[in-house]
Design a protein around this nucleic acid. Structure first.
Lengths: 160, 160
DNA sequence: AGTAAATCCTACTGATTCGGTAGGAATTAT
DNA sequence: ATAATTCCTACCGAATCAGTAGGATTTACT
């Protein structure tokens, strides 16, 4: 249960682009420096994000990257999937639907829990957009996975 | 976003013990065979589960493992933590509290989301007990396992 | 008492993933 | 032309993961 640096970096970088949205393209170097990420590594993450159509590139001098859509149209889930592939807690959930085939299917009492967990995760990640994040709140729109997240991260836009 | 085999195996094995709860101890070999897990590997997982007080062992012939508490008192979250350590999506969430110190904290717009995600995951894992899982075993039944109701896992009909 | 069945303990291993580096080709604003 | 930049692909060291190995210890059963 740990985020990969890939995901952490990717999301932070996308936030950076979101904040620059509307202006010109931003170079990898700039994002890497601001966020303290290896430039060459981030380059690779951007390649993946670009392949999935989340960002667009402008080559050559003064070039860089821009969001391919409005910040409100890019969900964190999209970023995670672009960087890590489909969110599938275990192989038997790869399809995401109930026709998924578990090799031990009939016997696996844990299966329903994994489904629930995966749905919960997906639903949180997909209900938060870049816009939500740069607005300073964790966007929790209509979606509360029954969690104890009653703690509405109010006005604490920047963390301690 | 993938469960380790460690977690998958551990939970499945614990379900096995839960189903045998009330009877005598169950040998590692038996669980390993039923669940298709390497015996020697499972042995190590059991060592961790035992260290955390989730299961108890009986050495020697006819020995084996039993749950250390009632199935309704063992949460999936406990199992995950015993096997993988504290659930912390990223280092800055290690404490689980808001005094967590992010090295880039002032600037990290993603932080509130990670907090929310981690809370969501924890809340699902901690609101489901072994009892919940074996109650809804074997497929069907509109699975509402361990809803976040916090109530359900109360009445355990222990075997004699 | 002897033996077989079991936990316990610790070390090793092979494969894979992860985070990062390296170097250079292609493109483009100035 | 040149400098800045994306793009592409290969490689690398360390860590983690899943599993193996071997044996010491404990205990029930006969």
């Amino acid at each position: 249960m740990k985020l990969s640096s890939r995901t952490e970096y990717g999301v932070r970088a996308m936030i950076e682009l979101a904040e620059a949205h509307g202006g010109g393209p931003v170079a990898v170097r700039e994002v890497a420096e601001k966020q303290g990420i290896s430039e060459k590594y981030l380059e690779q993450l951007f390649a993946a994000l670009r392949k999935e159509g989340l960002i667009a590139s402008q080559r050559g001098a003064q070039g860089g990257y821009t969001l391919a859509k409005a910040p409100g149209d890019i969900r964190v889930g999209d970023i995670v999937r672009a960087l890590e592939g489909p969110i599938a807690l275990c192989d038997c959930l790869a399809n995401g639907e109930d026709d998924a085939v578990c090799h031990r299917m009939g016997e696996c009492a844990a299966h329903p829990l994994w489904v629930k967990l995966q749905d919960g995760i997906t639903s949180i990640l997909d209900s938060t957009t870049l816009q939500d994040m740069i607005a300073g709140a964790s966007g929790d729109s209509a979606n509360d996975m029954g969690g104890n997240s009653e703690e509405e991260s109010r006005d604490e836009q920047d963390l301690p």
